[in-house]
Amino acid sequence: MQPAQAAPMYADSSSEAAPIERAKWPISDLIFQVCALLAILLALSVIIALLFDIFSDGFHRLSWDFLTSFPSRFAAKAGIYSALVGSFCLMLLTIVFSLPLGVGAAIYLEEYAPKNRWTALLELNLANLAGVPSIIYGILALQIFVRWLDFDRSLLSGALALTLLILPVIIIASREAIRTVPRTLREASLALGATQWQTIWTQVLPVALPGIMTGCILAFSRAIGETAPLITIGALTYVAFLPDGLFSSFTALPIQAYNWVSRPQEAFHANAAAAMVVLLIILLSMNAFAILLRVKYQKRTR
């Protein structure tokens, strides 16, 4: 059941605005334009330098063997198999935990929560939580999940730590997406006798979903590159087996790279660069997926 008509979520404002009269531009405008251009060039050149650096260091190490070998003391034989699978499982669990919690919280705040001081306080804290450094979440997770709940240094603890980390981001992104669903849609649904739950499930969520997914995928790609909380909860470095359950020990790509970078041998540094290339490829494809999702949605609603 798709809504017959929905307002575009990302309204293209330029097409609606009146064309700007291009009169005489003051010199200050030109200066600002140049400054803005320099800013974007600077940001881009940093990214390009970074990409060039790790690709030139690590590209020659990329091979099928590198992806399917366990860590080894010989840099040439070492691979990222356990780290890659570990990162993948970690991501999977993080998605399963954070998506229903985050979207649920966003639905509550947008659709059900009364507008009072308590809600305002909640909203303020959410924004604050999104800015808390990741290592703090690691310390929290170490105490709660590893020690109190005795999950040990397992995949489950790692995923829950990452869930804590990205939950505020997911809630904020989901709220933004839900808020863009036009009010008229809800009113129409309610007027036809649908309950509030039916309205949310069949009207609001389907329209908001691409927006929610875009925000969530960006949050997940932040989580996949995180090292600090995983190091804090004590993720391991040498793991020569694949995780076989929630309570299994694990390692992850950023941790494997972190360890290789600190080794004295140059060959291990190349391995670290190659592991980073793999991580970047995963990350960029996740981001690309988020963009595709948005583009596809925009086309459909027009």
């Binding site: 860590p71 080894s72 004590g234 470095t237 040498y238 793991v239 020569a240 020990s249 360890n259 080794r263």
Partner: peptide, 30 residues
């Protein structure tokens, strides 16, 4: 778990040990 200085030795031992005793899971942290 423990020292990152000793880690390379323990990693090497764990790697060789794993070749003989494949069912024993050795994990090493830093």
């Amino acid at each position: 778990d423990g020292s990152s200085t000793v880690y390379p030795i323990t990693e090497a031992v764990a790697e060789e040990f794993g070749k003989i005793h494949g069912d024993v899971r050795v994990t090493v942290g830093i």
